[in-house]
């Protein structure tokens, strides 16, 4: 798939994220219960159900981190100089997020998802293509984490998710700057829904 088509066509983006197994909002019954926005009548989950719901949310986010790691590895050969150095830092930080998510899932007695062996990424021909695709993935991750925040039962997971959102927003800022765009375009960072 051509990158321009991918970036401009919402259906292509949705199909891509669904096909690659990224489904933070896709949910089991227990997760949908935890997702209720009705704060006046919140769904009460038992400890085991709460942990299970947190594990499902964390695994959805872990899928996104694995995808970002694969994307940066795939895009790195197109980059040189300072931009390659930047992407290496991004790669290390995404790996740190994935390790942290996996650790949290295990602490909740869950089984972390594994990285997929192959991702059907759009065609990335140039350095700018890599940066634009990376920016789209970072923005998708930001939106997914923000969507997940109120769904966590464990409050400390929210704080840590917010610390990852902030790091992904920092990546987005660096990528925007590398693309010659305003690095801090808005007062509220909300990302881009998959």
């Amino acid at each position: 798939m051509e990158l321009d088509h991918f970036l401009r066509d919402p259906q292509s983006r949705r199909r891509f994220f669904r096909m690659t197994g990224v489904g933070v909002a896709g949910a089991s019954a227990v997760l949908l219960g935890a997702c209720s926005d009705d704060t006046k009548n919140p769904v009460r989950l038992g400890p085991d159900e709460s942990d299970q719901a947190d594990v499902e949310i964390l695994n959805g986010l872990l899928d996104l981190e694995f995808m970002a790691i694969a994307a940066y590895k795939a895009g790195a050969p197109k980059l040189g100089g300072e931009r390659l150095g930047i992407v290496k830092v991004f790669l290390e930080q995404e790996q740190a997020h994935a390790d942290g998510l996996s650790g949290s899932i295990e602490e909740l007695d869950g089984k972390p998802n594994r990285a997929k062996s192959d991702y059907d990424f759009p065609v990335l021909r140039t350095e700018a293509d890599v940066l634009r695709f990376a920016l789209d993935l970072e923005n998708t991750a930001i939106a997914a984490y923000i969507d997940a925040l109120p769904k966590f039962s464990e409050k400390k997971l929210r704080s840590t998710a917010a610390s990852i959102i902030t790091n992904e927003a920092e990546h987005a800022s660096v990528l925007l700057d590398a693309l010659g765009r305003e690095p801090v375009p808005a007062a509220f960072v909300t990302g881009k829904a998959a």
């Binding site: 930001i142 984490y145 923000i146 925040l149 998710a161 917010a162 959102i165 902030t166 790091n167 992904e168 927003a169 920092e170 987005a172 800022s173 660096v174 690095p183 801090v184 808005a186 007062a187 509220f188 960072v189 909300t190």
Partner: peptide
Amino acid sequence: SASIMANEGQHLVV
């Protein structure tokens, strides 16, 4: 609050 925190992080980058 998370979207504000992320914006402060972007300020920090610059």
